[in-house]
């Protein structure tokens, strides 16, 4: 069963643990600037929204690539960038209408979410359950609706850390 990242802005506190986890997995450095997931802050609304590639069906990035450097990973369903094939033309970065594939000037290639090969670090690091790795079918909407319903308008909303076991982090790359 393919799984996907479910992102729930309502649960996000803006801690950026996800960005650090992502950059560490992929680049070996705590660096939000190199994270594939990005949390956007809405100060006056008091909201945060984590956002990354949804591994969309359309796969605009993959189709736009002139050299076939983006492929579908048969195990995870993620659209993976093959670093050694990418020539850095950036056409994918304007093709993805979600802005979730980006040029990394230090490598001269593009980077995007690859679901950490099926073990997404952002979801492990997120303390509140704003990012979870779920069965593709049950993603998002249902859970998001459920959340919206149990936070009745009128009283304040807040999120506490979710219960979970101790997480283990193993670096696939490098």
């Amino acid at each position: 069963m393919l799984r996907a990242l479910s992102l729930e802005p309502d649960r996000c506190t803006g801690c950026l643990q996800c960005e650090m986890a992502c950059s560490y997995e992929n680049e070996g450095v705590f660096n939000p600037a190199k994270s594939r997931i990005k949390v956007f802050a809405f100060h006056t609304e008091g909201r945060f929204a984590p956002y990354t590639c949804t591994q969309c069906d359309e796969a605009w990035c993959l189709k736009a690539c002139p050299v076939d450097a983006i492929v579908i990973n048969s195990e995870t369903g993620a659209k993976d960038v093959l670093e050694d094939v990418c020539v850095g033309c950036k056409v994918c970065t304007i093709a993805c209408p979600f802005g979730t594939i980006n040029y990394n000037s230090s490598s001269g290639k593009v980077i995007k979410c690859d679901l950490c090969g099926g073990d997404p670090w952002c979801a492990k690091a997120c303390p509140t359950g704003a990012i979870t790795y779920v069965d593709a079918d049950s993603t998002g909407l249902e859970r998001m609706r459920a959340w919206a319903q149990n936070s009745p308008s009128g009283s304040a909303s807040f999120v506490t850390p979710t219960e979970k076991d101790v997480q283990h982090y193993e670096r696939v790359q490098l």
Binding site: C61, T93, I94, A95, C96, P97, G99, T100, I101, N102
Partner: peptide, 14 residues
């Protein structure tokens, strides 16, 4: 500007 420029397409096209 390179970060997340694709969203310009998204904003226009959607």
């Amino acid at each position: 500007l390179t970060d997340r420029i694709g969203v310009l397409r998204g904003l226009i096209q959607s």
